[in-house]
Write a protein that binds this DNA or RNA. Structure first.
Length: 234
DNA sequence: AGAACGGCCCTGGTTACCTCA
DNA sequence: CGTGAGGTAACCAGGGCCGTT
């Protein structure tokens, strides 16, 4: 145990403590009171001089642990006890480790902050993309309804003029429900579904009617009723 | 060979003292 | 001048390693 060092001068209290301390480790007590602990007198606690610290530091830079002969040599060079040199190196290693831990902690903290801000940015981007996706889904639904209405309309045209009237009003209704496609909607639809050639973007009922007029031969009924509807729309 | 023991040193934690704002 | 905070030399307990018996 460390109590065997004879090279360092102890106070009377320390001697008393050491003499009552068994060498076996079974005597360990978790709490060490000041009355038991060695009392240091004022002469036992002097800071090392700048020169001493300078030399100690320069050696510590190259080797953080000293062998026995090096320790003796250094102690003699510094005018210190070998025990003091050993303790200085122990404390110096502890300080070095503590600083290293602090630096590592700071580095980790910086990395964490950077990651956290990156995460927030990605979250925002993700939110924006989800919104865009929802918009596209809505557009897809509208397109589906449009096709459905158009097909219905075509079918109705084949069934006669009276049916056309109904179809037109149903078209009107569906337009009200769907609304007119904005320029953005059109461009999005073109971009994502490639529907420009396939689908006319008109949902205007009047144009639908004109189309119907131009395909009158498909209708089984006479022309005057078609004219009548044309007047109605204009 | 291997258990027991002593000496030395280490780490981690603590204490006592000093210095300085 | 008193005081609290921070720095540090010195210490302690517990444990590992190594040489000797």
């Amino acid at each position: 145990m460390s109590v065997h060092y004879s090279e360092f001068s102890h106070s009377a209290a320390a001697e008393a403590y050491n003499s009552t301390t068994p060498t076996s480790s079974s005597s360990s007590s978790p709490t060490r009171t000041c009355s038991i602990r060695k009392k240091k007198n004022s002469s036992s606690k002097k800071r090392f001089s700048d020169d001493q610290i300078k030399l100690l530091e320069s050696i510590f830079e190259t080797e953080s642990k000293l062998d026995h002969t090096k320790k003796l040599q250094l102690a003699s060079e510094l005018g210190l006890q070998p025990r003091q040199v050993a303790i200085w190196f122990q404390n110096r290693r502890a300080r070095s480790k503590s600083k290293h831990i602090q630096r590592s902690y700071n580095l980790l903290q910086e990395n964490y902050d950077a990651l956290a801000s990156k995460f927030e940015a990605l979250k925002k981007e993700n939110h924006a993309l989800l919104q865009e996706l929802q918009k596209l889904r809505d557009l897809e639904d509208r397109n589906f309804c449009y096709k459905k209405v158009r097909d219905e309309n075509l079918m109705n045209r084949e069934c006669g003029k009276a049916e056309v009237k109904q179809s037109s009003s149903s078209m009107e209704r569906s337009e009200k429900v769907l609304g007119v496609l904005s320029d953005d909607d059109r461009s999005l639809r073109t971009e994502y579904f490639g529907l420009e050639e396939e689908e006319p973007t008109i949902l205007n009922s009047q144009e639908v009617w004109r189309n119907l007029k131009s395909t009158d031969e498909l209708l089984p009924q006479s022309d005057d009723s078609a004219y009548q509807w044309g007047d109605f729309w204009s």
